[in-house]
Nucleic acid binder design. Structure first.
Lengths: 232, 232
DNA sequence: TTCACACGAACAAGCGATTGCGCAAGGGCT
DNA sequence: AGCCCTTGCGCAATCGCTTGTTCGTGTGAA
């Protein structure tokens, strides 16, 4: 109710026509929309990832930035606005990459491999966002209002892309027909994103190595010799 | 501080000699240690799973049980004590089953299959505990004191069991030698536990069906035809 | 009498959020 | 140059509210 102009509100991701309305004012002028603001978002994202969204107080975020909590409200409407920006930025980037991979075409196995690689490659730049999305998904969705509805919309679109390719692979005989596409998608998705819990940049394996390892096991399995039809 | 006798405190799991010191008093008398108490733990666990540990207030737990928040403290020292009991109960059960599977013996592939089945079969009875463990692991571990150190100890023991069997399978030529045992374990573990997010009892697939599906993909892969050595 | 259980009021601490103000930078104006 | 006035940013104080927890009391069954 107070501010005169405000460039405060970030607005949820649109997801379908992938673009966001930042840089509300001024189109010229070299600098990004607000360098300071982006920096604050990154600080907050790290805290959210480390302690959880609810357990992180606005005072902690402010302290991390070397200011007082009240000063944060010159940049953001609320704590929710901050996490909104964290998540929607990640989702816009991810979905954009998925779309590009699909548009580039190729056989299902190549496309699926590429999508796996895209996922793992997002682990490093979007580590905090992915962590928050996993840990606080339920809570954010339970908040009143439709502010975080775009989370579900994005998730739905991603699922359609994956399942579509799996089904196509089965149709052309590239994938075994006796596996459930949706179930398989969920397992792939989950094991990629959950890797954010143990993956650390600079560790024994980089994301490329992990992705290749995963693609190998995913397509060819853990066993040696001839494939069996069933049984463990 | 307050109570006279107290059978309040639950104490963290011991994990190595698997047993817990509940039923502090009375060894005779048919009923369990405290039926009421166990019921409250279950109610709380569901709330923790649904809303997250921190977002769940003791007032909500009490309301769910039809009492006032203060009355909860006749049964538990603190909110932490409740979640402690939720998690340690699950871990004790899980590790006990893993140990039994290992002691029963067999070739690595059979044992690993059995361990996968054990994991999926825990999804239903321990749904809440598994959810809490995933969502609030970081937060609980960050709490002061060593109360939740047993989480890491349990995780370490489980990892040793899995990785041991994977390595043994590679040694006897049952598993392909070009996969990283630890990385493979993490992927298996993650995709089992994360299934708790979408698995619902009474759904299209039961846990046995999901386990078989997963074992199939895990050992034989998604692709058809001859195994390739690398690449996606 | 004892015991398990619950009430109901209160507590200190901490929460997210609001507001009025000060301050320095800097572009546009005369 | 000198001036003004906007603008971005942050401080300090404070609001109303919720949190986990405590404690003296009451009650019904064994």
């Amino acid at each position: 109710m107070g501010g005169v102009n405000t460039r405060k509100n970030s607005g949820g991701a649109t997801t379908t026509p992938v673009k966001r309305q930042r840089t509300t004012k001024r189109a010229a002028s070299a600098g990004s929309a607000s360098e300071r603001r982006d920096h604050l978002v990154r600080l907050a994202a790290d805290l959210f990832a480390r302690k959880g969204f609810q357990a992180t107080t606005v005072r902690e975020i402010a302290e991390e930035a070397g200011i007082l909590s009240g000063s944060l409200y010159h940049h953001f409407d609320s704590k929710e606005t901050i996490v909104d920006e964290v998540l929607s930025t990640f989702l816009d980037d991810l979905i954009g990459r998925y779309r590009a991979a699909l548009e580039q075409g190729g056989d299902p196995r190549s496309i699926l491999s590429e999508m796996v690689r895209i996922g793992f490659s997002a682990l490093e730049p979007h580590r905090a966002a992915i962590t928050v999305m996993q840990n606080d998904w339920n809570y954010l969705r339970s908040l009143p209002g439709d502010r975080f509805d775009y989370l579900v919309r994005a998730e739905d679109e991603v699922e359609r892309m994956w399942v579509g390719q799996i089904k196509r692979g089965q149709a052309v005989g590239q994938f075994r027909p006796d596996v459930d596409p949706k179930l398989t998608y969920r397992m792939i998705r989950d094991s990629i994103w959950v890797a954010v819990r143990w993956f650390r940049p600079g560790g024994r394996l980089d994301t490329d190595g992990i992705a290749e390892h995963y693609v190998t096991v995913l397509f060819d399995g853990l066993a040696t010799g001839e494939r069996t039809s069933q049984r463990g």
